[in-house]
Design a protein around this nucleic acid. Structure first.
Length: 688
RNA sequence: GCCGAUGUAGCUCAGUUGGCCAGAGCUACUGAUUUGUAAUCAGUGGGUCGGGGGUUCGAAUCCCUCCAUCGGCUCCA
């Protein structure tokens, strides 16, 4: 028998007989190690630890501590769940069952059977039983014909479809206990590693992620090698929930929703409005320094503008339906509506939805054949800004022209998409459009990126990913404007900027806006959902469509490039993110309430008021707790409200013209003269 | 929009298999207390049980429907 050379990560080389497995090798080192090995990286490829190695190779043994080990563990757990499902629900058919970031799922077709939360408990129990059997995962290479035969007989059309997409020679089955699955692996050695099981939720998921396909039932779960790890994980989820912006937003009276206002339409309470104002103050300060001009535009616009911009064909579905008015050209005499009649009708008796329907039906019907003038709520600011560019003749001397507006936009997001402040239907974009020449593009684009980074530093945002979205050539003319050369040119420009600035990014094809490539900054909510926080987009299409031009130095006419940028995304999403990011403990400059003054007894209230006036004079957001509570209770109230500074005032402070400073979450900081505190705080409260 | 779940006072939650005027704590309000670094005591108020319809002698509880929210899917200019 020939022997093979195995190279370990530390550079050591050892010889083993050909056909030895990673598990054997682990055992040869130590039993303890062998008990931990889940899978192995052989020549850089993650494989079953129980698969024979037949040639010289580098070897890395992977355990639960390795990402790949964890993935295999959860992948194998998905198979275990499938086995449990099959034993409890005979005839169930299987789609895909991969590991995900925090566990795994399996998409199954239960044949019209309903499954609810009660069933999950049964499944968990079954999985635990099956895991305890210590069944080995067995790999088997199989011909396409035999594979089709197996799942054909079983009647699992999803597996058959998947096999048909595979090539001969790359099909493998894995079996554990009584369950066999089509799978490319790798898997852990046996089910005995799985000690703790939690099935987290049931959801619908379309087969292959396509809305037009059948919806399967997706069951999510997570497993661990130790019960304690599961307990810790569940505890961590509980902790995360406490940071949820929906919870804190309500507690701190930042925002609210109301059925009568409508889903996805946040109401900003005074505390929330302060945060918005502070963010906007920061943005204004930053943009002013960067040469931006502020503009203001209406919330609605005529249909003609969205036809021109090209948004309507692409995005009609996600805009609120239009408001139809009679065109101005319709003569008064032709108007078939008798306002007096309608008023009479509306005011007679109770106003019911049916009655309102009838009136509007009548109005619409009467207008049916007459020329209409349709208006849309704007779902983006860019067309309005293009019109501002176009309102004045422009020359190269005006460029780059940077127009900024925190305009309110309205998007008819699907009902199931709404999510606290993170996904809403009325939103304020931190928007600006930069019109520039091709030569100016790189430095402008780069400056926008620098602005992002400056903001992220201010807020201490370090967990994010820059995502560069490019077009898919085969979808030109459908999803993307049909300008192949411009696409290539601008994508190259963006890529060059990213590389030159040494900004780490990932590139994703077929994710661009219809008018050009873009960079999105992706962040995660505390629940783990991914969102686009900021966006920076190139637009070569709309300036052309709007016929925007400027006069060059040589008296020629050129079309500018446009950069759409929103470094703080929407105020809604950004504040939702910040609430979770800070867990409601805002830095002083952002905090809706900055100081709470806590007199010990009534005789200190007058002095407390004089301190309050001094702070107010510096525009500090201060409140006075003059209730007849004990100091402990006043402190507790202020702590719960997450107010950054508490000033305790008693006899000593009053006599010496001082305050006792207590910092939220930190405790007593000792005494300080009032004027010193006011000075220090007004510095801390300044817009960064 | 789709699948699954949830909806009781401002908030957090109790309300057994349908059965007296639907409860608790916190909050709010009133009074007493004048207090030194995370909850003083007492009293009072507060609910169309998400909306509508149905079954029943009787519905927070069972059924239908609509709305909203939550977990996903799809979508995300």
């Amino acid at each position: 028998m020939s022997s093979i050379k195995i190279t370990f990560p530390d550079g050591n080389i050892r010889e083993y007989p050909a056909g030895t497995t990673a598990l054997d090798i682990a055992k040869s080192i130590s039993e303890g190690l062998a008990r931990k090995v889940l899978v192995a990286k052989v020549n850089g490829e993650v494989r079953d630890a129980f698969r024979p190695i037949n040639e010289d190779a580098t070897l890395q043994l992977l355990s639960w501590e390795d990402k790949d080990g964890q993935a295999a563990f959860w992948h194998s757990s998905a198979h275990l769940m499938a086995e449990a499902l099959e034993s409890l629900f005979p005839g169930v058919k299987f789609g895909y069952g991969p590991p995900v970031e925090n566990g795994f799922y399996y998409d199954v077709d239960l044949g019209g059977r309903k499954i609810g939360d009660e069933d999950l408990a049964k499944l968990e129990k079954k999985m635990t039983e099956l895991a305890a059997q210590n069944n080995a995962y067995v790999r088997k290479e199989i011909s396409k014909k035999d594979a089709l035969d197996y799942f054909g007989k079983k009647g699992d059309e999803y597996k058959v479809e998947t096999i048909n997409e595979l090539n001969e020679g790359e099909i493998t089955f894995y079996q554990q206990g009584n369950f066999t699955d089509l799978c490319r692996g790798p898997h852990i050695p046996n089910t005995g590693f799985i000690k703790a099981v939690k099935l987290t939720n049931i959801a619908g998921a379309y087969w292959k992620g396509n809305e037009n396909n059948k919806q399967l039932t997706r069951i999510y779960g997570v497993t661990f090698p130790k019960q304690k790890e599961l307990d810790d994980y569940l505890k961590m989820l509980e902790e995360a929930k406490k940071r949820d912006h929906r919870k804190i937003g309500k507690e701190l009276e930042i925002f609210a929703f109301d059925d009568d206002v409508g889903p996805g339409m946040p109401l900003w309470l005074p505390n929330g409005a302060i945060i918005i104002e502070q963010l906007e103050a920061l943005a204004k300060k930053t943009e002013e320094a960067a040469g931006y001009h502020r503009v203001k535009t209406p919330h609605i616009a005529r249909e003609s503008m969205y036809l021109k911009s090209g948004h309507l064909p692409y995005y009609a579905e996600s805009m609120f339906p239009p408001m139809s008015l009679l065109a101005e050209s319709v003569k008064k005499a032709e108007r078939p509506i008798n306002k007096e009649e309608i008023k009479k009708e509306l005011f007679a008796g109770d106003l019911t939805p049916e009655k309102i329907d009838a009136v509007f039906d009548q109005l619409l019907k009467a207008r049916e054949d007459l020329p209409q003038d349709r208006y849309y709520l704007k779902s983006m600011n860019c067309p309005h800004h293009h019109k501002i560019f176009d309102a004045v003749p422009r020359s190269y001397k005006d460029l780059p022209l940077r127009l900024a507006e925190y305009g309110t936009c309205y998007r008819y997001e699907q009902s199931g998409e709404l999510f606290g402040l993170m996904r809403v239907r009325s939103l304020n974009m931190n928007d600006a459009h930069i019109y520039c020449t091709e030569e100016q593009f790189a430095s402008e684009f780069r400056a926008v990126n620098d602005m992002y980074l400056r903001y992220f530093k201010i807020f201490g945002i370090d967990k994010y990913v820059m995502r560069f979205s490019t077009h898919a050539p085969e979808k030109l003319g459908q999803k993307y404007v049909n300008e192949p050369e411009l696409w290539k040119k601008t994508e190259d420009m963006v890529r060059r900027v990213l590389i030159d600035a040494q900004i780490p990014y990932i590139e994703v094809p077929d994710e661009a806006a219809f008018y050009g490539p873009k960079i999105d900054v992706q962040i995660w909510s505390v629940i783990g959902r991914e969102f686009t926080l900021a966006t920076n987009q190139v637009d070569f299409a709309q300036p052309l469509r709007f016929g925007l031009t400027y006069t060059t130095r040589n008296n020629q006419t050129e079309t500018p490039i446009c950069i759409h940028r929103a470094p703080l995304g929407t105020h809604e999403r950004f504040i939702g993110f910040l609430i979770e990011h800070y867990a409601g403990n805002f830095p002083v400059w952002l905090s809706p309430r900055q100081v709470s003054i806590l007199p010990i007894a009534d005789r200190h209230v007058e002095y407390a008021k004089s301190v309050m006036e001094k702070l107010k004079a510096q525009r500090i957001r201060v409140m006075l707790d003059d209730t007849s509570e004990k100091i402990g209770k006043k402190i507790r109230d202020a702590e719960v409200k997450k107010i950054p500074y508490m000033l305790v005032i008693g006899d000593k402070e009053q006599q010496e013209g001082k305050v006792s400073v207590r910092k939220h979450g930190e405790g007593d900081k000792g005494q300080i003269a009032v004027d010193d505190f006011v000075l220090a705080l007004s510095q801390e409260a300044a817009i960064p």
